Simulated assay, not measured.
Amino acid sequence: MHHLLRLLVLVALVAGCNVSRAPAPGGAVVASAAQFVPRFGDGDPTDWPGRAPWAYQVHGIDLSRWQTDVDWRAVRQSGVSFAFIKATEGGDHVDPAFDQHWRDAAAAGVARGAYHFFYLCRPASEQAEWFIRNVPRDRNALPPVLDMEWTPFSPTCTRRPPPEVIRAEAQEFLRRIERHYGRRPLIYTTPEFYRTNDMGRLGYPMWLRAVADHPSTVYPGQDWSFWQYTGTGRVPGFSGDVDINAFRGSRADWIRFAGG
Rank of each mutant, 00 (worst) to 15 (best):
H3S: 13
L8K: 08
L8Q: 09
V9T: 14
L10I: 14
A12K: 00
A15H: 09
G16Y: 06
N18V: 12
A24T: 12
G27L: 02
A28W: 05
V30I: 07
S32I: 02
Q35D: 13
Q35T: 14
Q35R: 13
V37D: 01
P38I: 05
G41D: 11
G43A: 08
G43Y: 08
W48E: 14
G50K: 15
R51P: 07
P53D: 07
W54T: 08
A55N: 13
Y56K: 12
Q57N: 13
G60S: 14
G60R: 01
I61F: 01
L63V: 13
R65L: 10
T68P: 06
D69I: 05
V75Y: 02
R76H: 07
R76V: 00
S78Y: 04
S78V: 00
V80D: 00
F82I: 03
F84N: 03
F84W: 14
K86T: 04
A87Y: 09
G90L: 06
G91T: 14
H93E: 11
V94M: 14
V94K: 14
A97T: 12
A97R: 15
F98I: 09
F98Y: 10
R103C: 03
A105P: 01
V110N: 01
R112N: 04
F117L: 10
F118M: 12
L120P: 00
R122E: 02
R122I: 00
R122Q: 11
R122W: 00
Q127A: 10
Q127S: 11
W130D: 04
R133D: 09
P136D: 08
P136L: 05
P136V: 03
D138K: 02
D138E: 06
P143A: 09
P143G: 09
L146P: 04
E149R: 13
T151N: 15
T151C: 08
R159N: 08
R159P: 03
P162Y: 13
E164G: 06
V165H: 11
A168W: 03
A168P: 03
A170R: 06
E172P: 00
R176C: 00
E178G: 11
R179I: 02
R183C: 05
R183D: 02
R184M: 08
R184A: 03
P185D: 08
P185M: 03
I187Q: 07
T189K: 10
T190H: 09
P191D: 10
Y194N: 12
T196W: 09
M199N: 13
L202F: 12
G203Y: 05
P205Y: 13
W207Q: 09
A210S: 15
A210D: 04
S216P: 00
Y219C: 03
Y219D: 04
G221K: 02
D223N: 15
W224H: 07
W224D: 10
W227A: 04
W227N: 04
W227L: 07
Q228L: 04
Y229Q: 02
T230R: 00
T230A: 03
G231F: 07
T232K: 06
G233N: 05
V235H: 06
P236E: 12
G237Q: 03
D241V: 01
D241C: 01
V242N: 02
V242E: 01
V242F: 04
N245P: 00
G249S: 02
S250W: 05
A252Y: 00
A252R: 09
A252M: 00
W254N: 08
W254K: 06
I255G: 00
R256W: 06
A258K: 12
G260P: 05
G260K: 04
